[in-house]
Amino acid sequence: MPAPAISDWPDAEAFPALRREGRAASAHLRLSMQQRTWRGSIGNWAGAGIGSSIDFQDHRPYVPGDDPRHIDWAAYARSGNYIMKLYREEVSPRVDLILDVSRSMLWEEAKRNRLLELACFCAESAAATGSSLRLHTVCGEAAHLFSPDTLAREFWPPPPIESAPGPPRLERLHLQNGSLRIFLSDLLYDTPPAGLLRILAGGKGRVTVLAPYLRLEEQPDWHGNLELIDCESGFRRRQRVDTGLLEKYRAAYRRHLEQWEDTARRYAVLLARVPCEPALLNSLQGEPFAKGAVEPWA
C-alpha cells in the first residue's frame, strides 16, 4: 500500500518558487471581494453593518448616544425631528483558506504545485486586500491550522497527513463566521458533495471552490491490461483498458463533475476548475476569472 509520504510536500528549496508564482499571479488578479458585503474588523471593504464610510446607507431616528456629527440637519429642518444619517461599514474580510492535502492532491507533482501556488496566490491576495487569513489543511480526519507567524514565512512546513484518508472531515475546521472560504481540492471523493458543501457554506460563509485538475484525469492515456492502484487507499484493481472502457470512464468523470456543479449551485458555492498544466496566471484567467472567483485589480 503506498503510504502518503511527507516528502510529497515540497521542501524549503522548492517552496519559494511556488510562492513566487502565486505572488506573480496576485499582481494581476485577486480574490473576488467586490459585489459582496463582509464581516470583520475595520477595513476597506463594504461591511454588512453600519460604519463610518462615506457610502450613505439609511436614515433612522436619533437616539441618545449617537454621534451628533451624523445628524441630518436638512432632515431636521424639514421635519423638526433629529434624523441620523447612516453610512456603510468598511471592514477587512475574513478569509478561511482550506487546503485539501490528501494524497491525491500531493502525489502528482503538477497538481501539488498548483495547489500550493493557488494557496500562495490566495494568501498574497488576502494580504493585499487587507483580509485576515486563516490557512487550514485537511486530510481525512486530520485538520490543521497554520499560525499567522508560519504564514508569514517563506516556507510553510508540511501539515499532518493521514496515510489512508477518507473524505475530508471539514466539520473539524474552525471556520470564521461570515468569512470567505476558499476550498482548494480536486473534489475526487467517492461521497456526495452536498455534505461537504453544506459544512463549508455554514456560518454565513461565502464559499469558493478552486479545483485543480490534471488533463490526464479527464483524458487518461491508459491502454491494455493495467493494475490500477488507488493513490490514497492503495486498493488495486486489475483492469483491461480499451477504447470502450475509456469512454465509460470519461462519462463517469463528467457525471462526477456535473454532480459537484449542481450541488454547488444549490448551495450558492462558486466552483471553478483550475488546470494544472498551464502557468498559474493563465489558469486563473480561464474558468476562475469567467466565473468570478478572481477579479482584476481595479
Binding site: 503506498p2 494524497r103 491525491s104 502525489w107 502528482e108 480536486d186 475526487l188 471523493y189 467517492d190 484525469e217 487518461p220 491508459w222 491494455g224 491490461n225 493495467l226 493494475e227 490500477l228 492502484i229 488507488d230 493513490c231 490514497e232 486498493f235 488495486r236 484493481r237 486489475r238 483492469q239 483491461r240 472502457l245 465509460k248 470512464y249 463517469a252 468523470y253 462526477h256
Partner: peptide, 25 residues
Amino acid sequence: LQSRNRPREISTLFLLAHLPEESKR
C-alpha cells in the same frame, strides 16, 4: 501477454468502481 498487468497509480479509481473487473488475478 498483455495479461501481465502494468501497475499504474491513479487518483480516480473510484470512478471505475461500478465497472466489472476484466482480468483474473
